[in-house]
Write a protein that binds this DNA or RNA. Structure first.
Length: 590
RNA sequence: GUCCCCGUAGCUCAGUUGGAUAGAGCACCAGAUUCCUAAUCUGGGGGCCAGUGGUUCGAAUCCACUCGGGGACGCCA
């Protein structure tokens, strides 16, 4: 149940009435009419701009129109009063007795409170991480991984049928380098002195076990083969080994993909899948043979002007048409990507999301253009760019360099600070804003660290749920929601300002989930949780000074029951939000 | 030269898709606990929302241009 949606309906019906009585013209645009929490809580519980939006079509002064709406709003039983304010806002105060119903809607089904249905069960594919399979993940990959995973959880909660997908870039030159590097380690494992790893090869020690593995599997055999013969064998082995590393790293972050899609598979059978994708574009008239202007800026050394196969991306909002074949006749990366997105569409994904690194910003338009063309406008694609993470230690930036050996792996970070802080911190920023990740702050166990602040609030709710046994024997959080005493609590004694503030906050959760999901911005959940935790901690502290505000009142079982129901609702909501972020909700922190 | 992202308190950032007097944390200053976990809370100062114009009842938010920072610009993925 979303209070704001409920009132959106109320207002909408009132406008219908005004249309029926001829006050508002039938064709008046009502798109802009919204019901939202006022910026200042003192103004009321809800506010709507209906009168201001409709004043022009109705040819009435906003405040006069507002008076008509106010009268009708006051007929609604949970409305205590409504006033016109400022230029024509309508502020609505609800009956105080309404708020406890929020607690009931949480406790009736705690795991589903706030669950939205904007997805309507439709299939959605989210592709994220997609790090090259050439080594373990480093911190740079971390943010995209966490962001993508949280977004996937959020969209699931919002009613989409979500598939998490990883695109393995196993077709390019980089995996050849990987295989050659592994081959060196293989020779090393056979006792050969390989000296320094040559320039252009991957020097990482993580390839040493792979060399040993190759030695075990092939013995001396590979040495007798030509490169053309051993390369595919070693490549296959290497990619599998690297993907195993990467899956392990992801598992350390609590991330699991359902589908791992191989780029190489698109190139099988002479690129049959890519060719057929291009064919279908061709039959739509989106392909032609032509020339492109040379790129601006630095001219590539090997630039040649030639006629080539081009996709008419400009028809779909891109800046230039895009090449699909390299001069050597093979397909471009983009051509393969078209085939990949077409494949996703063919698998039924009309909603697609790609999470990409900051350096891929220039790629967005052509991807969107391609999917639009290939799906005939039936599928939508959102490309989320995650900005760089700046790693700080003691306030100083940690420069990363593969050669200097100051290369920080994802595993290093997770081992040092733990999964929860890593995930939460990555989600405390909007995805397209740069992020400072300070080891000292992230491991700090104080209110300065939002992770602990929110988790501690959750732990505190459970502390209360444990303590209350003295007053209400037999209660525990696991069966709380079926406890008759809690279920039948009248909740009419939750009248303290602090308590009502918290109930108001709880009432906003569905709305936050909705907007976060609709805008693909999981960080909104993180901010909401911080605010809810803050309200709870504040209220708690008031009990220090005013013991009558404490939740547990030894001599008043009824009041304690009401308050424990509120605490349970807070607890469930915190847990729900943390679950969306993939962060644990501890029962105790000592 | 073109395109994308960004510019909000001293610092790090939110800003409910166009709403009322622009918020939070850090830092700074002043306080609170004989404790339902102080891993907490209360109060205070601090702003040309980069700039200029436009759209309208109303702009940090939308549009145009300018300045400043970052990124991308066939055959790297």
């Amino acid at each position: 149940m979303d209070l704001f949606v409920t009132f959106q309906d109320h207002v909408s019906k009132i406008i219908d009435d005004l249309v029926a009585t001829g006050v508002v013209p039938k064709d008046a645009a009502r798109k802009g009419v919204i019901v939202e929490p006022p910026r200042d809580a003192a103004h009321g519980d809800l506010s709507t701009n209906a009168a201001m939006v409709l004043s022009k079509p109705a040819q009435k002064k906003p405040r006069d129109l507002a008076d008509l709406i106010v009268a009708k709003l006051e007929d609604i039983d949970i409305v205590h009063s409504a006033q016109v304010a400022g230029p024509g806002f309508i502020n609505i105060h609800l009956e105080q007795s309404f708020w406890p119903s929020i607690i009931h809607s949480v406790l009736d089904d705690p795991e589903n409170f706030g669950r939205a249905n904007i997805g309507n069960g439709e299939k959605l594919n989210i592709e994220y991480v997609s790090a090259n399979p050439t080594g373990p993940m480093h911190v740079g990959h971390c943010r995209g991984a966490v962001f993508g995973d949280a977004l996937a959880r959020l969209l699931e909660f919002a009613g989409f049928d979500v598939t998490r997908e990883y695109y393995i870039n196993d077709a390019g030159a980089q995996v050849d380098v990987l295989a050659k590097s592994a081959f060196l380690r293989y020779q090393e494992a056979l006792g050969k002195d390989i000296g320094d790893i040559p320039e252009g090869y991957y020097p990482g020690e993580y390839l040493i076990p792979l060399g040993a593995q190759l030695q075990e599997k092939y013995g001396q055999d590979l040495l007798t083969m030509e490169e053309a013969e051993w390369l595919p064998l070693v490549k296959k082995e290497s990619i599998e080994a690297m993907m195993a590393l990467i899956r392990n790293d992801l598992a350390a972050l609590n991330i699991q993909h359902e589908v791992f899609f191989s780029e190489k598979s698109l190139h099988n059978n002479d690129g049959a899948m890519i060719a057929s994708a291009i064919e279908s574009l061709e039959s739509g008239g989106h392909i032609y043979q032509g020339r492109l202007d040379p790129p601006k800026g630095k001219l590539p050394a090997d630039w040649e002007d030639r006629e080539q196969t081009l996709f008419r991306a400009t028809d779909f909002g891109d800046d230039v048409d895009r090449a699909l074949k390299k001069s050597n006749g093979s397909f471009t990366y983009f051509a393969a990507d078209i085939a990949y997105h077409k494949d996703k569409y063919d698998r039924g994904f009309t909603h697609q999301i790609d999470v990409l690194g900051a350096d891929h910003g220039g790629y967005i338009k052509r991807l969107k253009a391609a999917l639009k063309a290939i799906s005939d406008g039936k599928a939508d694609l959102d490309v989320k760019i995650v900005q760089l993470v700046k790693l700080l230690r003691d306030g100083k930036e940690v420069k990363m360099s593969k050669r200097a050996g100051t290369f920080v792996t994802l595993r290093d970070v997770v081992d040092e600070v733990g999964v929860d802080p890593v995930r939460f911190m990555m989600l405390m920023r909007k995805n397209d804003a740069p992020l400072d990740f300070d080891f000292a702050k992230v491991t700090d166990q104080s209110k300065d660290n939002p992770v602990f602040y929110v988790q501690y609030a959750h732990a505190r709710t459970h502390s209360l749920l444990r303590q209350v046994q003295n007053v209400l024997p037999g209660i525990n959080s696991a069966i709380l929601f079926s406890d008759e005493r809690v279920k039948s609590a009248s909740l009419q004694r939750l009248v303290d300002e602090g308590e009502i503030t918290i109930m108001r906050k709880l009432a906003q959760y569905p709305r936050i989930v909705n907007s976060a999901a609709a805008s693909h911005e999981p960080h909104r959940i993180a901010f909401y949780l911080y605010e809810l935790a803050n309200e709870f901690h504040s209220h708690w502290a008031r009990g220090k000074v005013a013991p009558q505000l404490r939740v547990i009142q030894e001599d008043d079982r009824e009041l304690t029951t009401d308050r424990i129901a509120l605490v349970a609702a807070i607890s469930a909501t915190l847990k729900s939000g943390l679950m969306i972020l993939g962060v644990s909700a501890p029962l105790e922190m000592r």
